[in-house]
Amino acid sequence: MEKRKVFFLINSIGFGGAERALVNLLSVPSLYSGLDVRIILLDKEPLVRQLPSTVKVHQLNAKRSLLFSLVQLNALVRKEKPTLIVSFLVRANVANAITTLFQNHSAVLCERMHLTSHLDNQFTGWMRAVAGAIPRISYGRASAVLGVSRGVTKDLVEHFHVSPGKAHTIYNPYNIDDIRAASKETPSISLPSRFIVSAGRLTEAKNFKHLINAYLKSSERDPLCILGEGEQKEALAQFIKKKGAEKRVLLVGYAKNPFSVFSRAKYYISASTNEGFPNALLEAMTVGLPVVMTNCPSGPAEILDADPDFQSDKYHFGKYGILVPLGDERELVYAINQMQIEDVRVNYSSKSKLRAEDFCIGKISAEYWQFLRRFL
Results as ranks from 00 to 15, higher is better:
182 A>G: 00
71 V>Y: 14
162 V>A: 03
46 P>D: 14
321 G>I: 00
194 R>N: 12
176 I>D: 04
127 M>K: 14
205 A>N: 10
103 Q>T: 13
36 D>C: 04
290 P>L: 08
166 K>D: 06
233 K>Y: 11
127 M>P: 05
131 A>C: 07
354 L>W: 11
203 T>C: 13
49 R>A: 11
45 E>A: 12
303 I>M: 13
87 S>A: 13
60 L>D: 11
231 E>G: 12
184 K>C: 04
293 M>K: 05
331 E>V: 00
113 M>A: 14
366 A>K: 10
29 P>M: 09
93 N>C: 06
253 G>K: 09
122 Q>I: 02
112 R>S: 06
24 N>Y: 02
181 A>W: 02
216 L>G: 04
364 I>K: 03
46 P>R: 07
139 Y>E: 08
41 L>D: 07
343 D>N: 15
215 Y>T: 01
359 F>S: 02
352 S>H: 05
180 R>I: 00
165 G>A: 08
209 K>G: 06
55 V>T: 09
297 P>K: 11
205 A>V: 05
113 M>V: 04
365 S>C: 14
164 P>G: 03
303 I>A: 12
76 L>G: 06
327 G>W: 03
309 D>K: 06
116 T>K: 11
92 A>G: 08
298 S>E: 12
1 M>P: 14
126 W>G: 07
218 S>D: 13
199 A>Q: 07
348 Y>G: 10
356 A>H: 02
31 L>H: 11
194 R>G: 02
5 K>P: 08
349 S>M: 08
67 L>V: 12
21 A>H: 08
164 P>R: 03
121 N>C: 14
178 D>H: 03
27 S>G: 10
255 A>P: 07
35 L>T: 01
338 Q>R: 10
169 T>L: 00
138 S>F: 06
292 V>T: 08
66 L>M: 11
229 E>W: 02
294 T>N: 13
296 C>K: 02
199 A>L: 03
290 P>W: 06
126 W>T: 13
84 L>W: 07
67 L>F: 14
57 V>T: 15
340 Q>C: 13
150 R>I: 00
87 S>F: 06
40 I>R: 04
257 N>Y: 07
252 V>Y: 07
312 S>K: 08
67 L>R: 13
281 L>Y: 04
319 K>Y: 10
